[in-house]
Design a protein around this nucleic acid. Structure first.
Lengths: 105, 105
DNA sequence: CCGGTGTGTAAGTGTTAACTTACGGTCGAT
DNA sequence: ATCGACCGTAAGTTAACACTTACACACCGG
């Protein structure tokens, strides 16, 4: 699985990030989410669509409603990507320090 | 240090994310970055300002130019945050599976 | 069978924000 | 001391996008 920036870019909206944060702790229906945010229900649906398109959430029809959950696999991949960023940045930092030490010697 | 969504939100722009990706592998000057993207140099400066405001990059004046680097500490914090998301989503997933097992028994 | 609930989508609107151009300011070299 | 390279900021424009309203459809209980 290659690196997909879409997932990271999908979190660029504050409301969308907050929605994902709720879903991380358990499944929720659209109505429940909409009642916790100062936006209309269709707006929540649109945010959920974006999150679903990038694979960050999954949905399941249960009775009348539709339950949304955060996908642990996608979140794990996102964390791994950030981890490689961290690793590379750390390596660059160490290299810079060593170069400076060389100059001072 | 509490959770700051600003860093995550700052990565919502594709160009800004790409810029950070370059800086992760080593320090760069503004001119260098501008030459690698199809946007003007001031546009790069503005992106760098956003990244700097949220602490993801640091800058240092060296001679005539100004070197930008990705901050490993901020990236580590971001990775940790994603890691808690992953942990919580995983716990919710396991809980859901167990509930289903109970029903089937 | 019919009303209420829950949901997705289309169309339209308004505001944010990314970008460009223009300007000023600093540093180094000639 | 002047010229050129490098950079940040201000102002203005345009396009993206988050949001609302309106509509259409599925599911469930009376």
């Amino acid at each position: 699985m290659t690196y997909q920036p879409e997932a990271l870019l999908a979190l660029g909206d504050p409301t969308r990030l907050a929605i994902l944060e709720r879903l991380v702790d358990g499944p929720r229906a659209v109505v429940e989410l909409a009642s916790e945010f100062p936006i209309s229900r269709p707006a929540v649906s649109q945010h959920l669509r974006v999150l679903k398109d990038v694979g960050l959430v999954t949905d399941e029809a249960v009775g009348n409603r539709r339950m949304y959950r955060a996908d642990p696999v996608a979140l794990g991949a996102l964390r791994d990507q950030l981890d490689t960023f961290w690793t590379r940045a750390m390596a660059a930092y160490k290299a810079a320090v060593e170069d400076q030490d060389e100059e001072e010697s």
